[in-house]
């Protein structure tokens, strides 16, 4: 019985620490970024409201938006995007909702609460599983 009590007590501690670890590493929304007053590394999950490609500046600007209208301008190198995705951004290469990791620089202008210099664009695989299967080699 002592063993079971010890196990239950340690399990509670593990659950608590595990829950904190998982939730603290979860994604932030655009409006949550407003709490930062200095440049911070963030992982943000947002809807892509607009995409602008600036080939002369080798830049892609993703306009990320929240449900309450908060916006962040997320910047990524066009050449890097093309080397990863094979083509410039379009509906076939960028999903409506994305997860991006990078450095957030707060600076308010209009609806935008700052800019995000993207280090990585992360894509979930959920939508792939809805596609019909293919085979080949």
């Amino acid at each position: 019985m002592k063993g079971l009590i010890l196990a239950a007590a340690v399990a509670l501690v593990i659950l608590l620490v595990g829950y904190m670890a998982i939730t603290s590493s979860s994604y932030e929304s655009v409006s949550q970024l407003a709490r930062y007053s200095r440049p911070t590394v963030v992982t943000v999950r947002a809807r892509v409201a607009d995409i602008k490609t600036l080939p002369d500046r080798d830049l892609i600007v993703f306009v990320l938006e929240d449900d309450n209208g908060s916006r962040v301008l997320a910047l990524y190198r066009l050449t890097r995007f093309i080397s990863q995705y094979g083509a410039p951004p379009s509906h076939s290469t960028v999903e409506q909702e994305v997860v991006m990791r990078g450095v957030f620089y707060p600076s308010r202008s209009g609806n935008a609460i700052g800019r995000l210099e993207i280090r990585e664009i992360l894509q979930g695989c959920h939508r792939a599983y809805e596609a019909p299967p293919a085979t080949g080699g």
Partner: peptide, 17 residues
């Protein structure tokens, strides 16, 4: 060598699936 993979994927080589 012959396992099916999703025909449309968001990112990367589809055979990675």
């Amino acid at each position: 060598t012959a396992g099916p993979f999703p025909s449309v994927v968001p990112l990367g080589n589809p055979t990675a699936y």
